[in-house]
Amino acid sequence: MLDPFHILIAEDEVLAAMALEDFLSLRGFRVTVAANGVEALERYVSQRVHALVTDLRMPRMDGQTLIREIRERDATLPVVVMTGYLNQDSDLTHERWKPLEIFSKPVNPRTICETLNRMLGLPQRA
């Protein structure tokens, strides 16, 4: 069996991160959780990560900055954004950040999972 895909979750709300981690683990992903942008970037740099699931408003380093930092290193890493409030002048909807999908909180973990599968080129589960 292939090594499972490694998903990095950047989310400061511990309970949300925990539930998503559990959900994605059940779906066969390997999951790492970071509580803020800085921690997430450290994990990204030190480990091989296949996709990023991130919140936007986080202490120390926000999601936008994290995505910019990661895009500088990897133009093709699949990114899923979960946000409670998308600033109107955020340019995350721009083409240049793709592959990137944005979901408003509350998010449906099934949708997150399906999106990750699609972005990673995995077959959709029934």
Binding site: E13, L15, A16, A19, L20, F23, M82, G84, K105, P106, V107, N108, P109, R110
Partner: peptide, 8 residues
Amino acid sequence: NVIRLWTE
């Protein structure tokens, strides 16, 4: 979000 994730 927490509610949705935990119930799902």
